[in-house]
Design a protein around this nucleic acid. Structure first.
Lengths: 222, 222
DNA sequence: AGACTATTCAAATGGTCAATAGAGAGTTTA
DNA sequence: TAAACTCTCTATTGACCATTTGAATAGTCT
């Protein structure tokens, strides 16, 4: 076969992208970067990695052209190289959730109560939000809200929630969202809101999926 | 963080899917299986692997739930577990082609003439085909044609092409398709057809992409 | 039983990962 | 300007994992 060498080189180069996806810590870093730009230090802290270790994983992602970086003073800020990277990651994640029993089981154990949280779909959120029937709460850390959030949402990180209950309406339904379907911030927020007597549900997916669906977003403070 | 253990397990299980994609030979096997069901022996032959080695790679893909298999007499036939696997593979391939310079370069070297082959898009093919202005040629091995082909296409494997030129029309344009954008069967067919005086072009993508676009397909002989 | 196909095993090789120490690069302080 | 400091990257090490090969084993059909 004359083009055996071509195939070997082609599939070999394609495999560098696959290799970048072949480690759990790197997938977690991609998931974090799907929320927005981060420094090495922040990523290491969130993923419970040493800075040196996080840096090495980020080099692998960078060599596979999945992330880009820029120096900002003494820090280096990483981001996903392209929206298509987020699409690839979401597809991998969703395929695994659907087809790999281990993934489905781990998720089911952690989210056993999520049915009771009445996850709300994107379409309904846009409808109720524009009708003024709903308050949308971004319960991620503030930094992520500033980097980008659903248009019309209010930032209320989980740590602040208990102290700011007085700001919330009792006549409107409250919907909380966070980083994605497997992030527990929104679940926890809904639990606490219901315990305090509010009508609350969680958004089915998270902020990255909202952006992928090309729905309206804002950056900076509300 | 209370759910650190959950995250480690979740991302760890997700990484098994990534690991399955982390080897060039396995990506080639997935690409072959995108054409249809294959035995271990056939896959090993096409990918230039020993049967034992191919079998081991297929075990990895099977453990990641990307392929399924069935015993057929003395043979075992593998197939992609789900259309979503093909979508994941296509997305990985296209992302790499777009973002990884090594991939782009290897493809450019091999397909330097492809601009001259006037690749035809799906939409135009459906239009011209139903109008009777076009003959669509499936130049993959016959077995792949039988496993599934574009509705209205004719099977003419590359080896048979020279001997069957008399069957082909000179008043209609001929479009050849094969396994995908990086498969060279169609390029080669177009070259030979033009050399014999026919009007010929290649389809931009291949059979797997046609099925993913939910366009009409047939199985078995024409 | 014999032929054929696929899987498993064992061994050799080469690669990946995490941890540590230390080197660069950029900023602030003395 | 130099020194101290912060953040990030690199080099090295040892443990572990991935890949390939050839031989042995298991399963199926005739």
């Amino acid at each position: 076969m004359v083009n055996r060498e071509f195939k070997d080189r082609l599939y070999g180069h394609l495999a560098t992208v696959g290799q970048a996806l072949a480690n759990g810590h790197r997938l977690e870093l991609i998931d974090l970067l799907a929320q927005g730009e981060r420094t090495v230090d922040e990523l290491a802290g969130e993923a419970r990695l040493s800075v040196a270790n996080a840096s090495q994983h980020l080099q692998v992602l960078h060599r596979a052209h999945l992330v880009s970086r820029r120096r900002d003073g003494v820090q280096v800020r990483y981001r996903l190289a392209d929206p298509s990277v987020m699409r690839l990651w979401v597809r991998l994640r969703d395929l695994a959730a659907e087809r790999v029993p281990d993934v489905a089981q781990v998720v089911a154990e952690e989210f056993e109560l999520s049915d009771e949280l009445d996850a709300v779909e994107h379409v309904e959120i846009e409808r109720q939000l524009s009708a003024g029937n709903m308050l949308l709460l971004d319960v991620r850390p503030r930094q992520e809200y500033l980097a980008g959030h659903v248009a019309g949402s209010i930032s209320m990180p989980l740590e602040e929630l208990e102290g700011r209950l007085a700001e919330l309406p009792r006549e409107r339904e409250i919907v909380a969202y966070c980083r994605g379907p497997y992030c527990s911030f929104a679940n926890e927020a809904v639990r606490r809101l219901r315990a305090a007597g509010f009508r609350a549900r969680r958004m089915a997916l998270g902020y990255p999926e909202w952006t992928l669906a090309a729905r309206p977003v804002r950056t900076g403070a509300a």
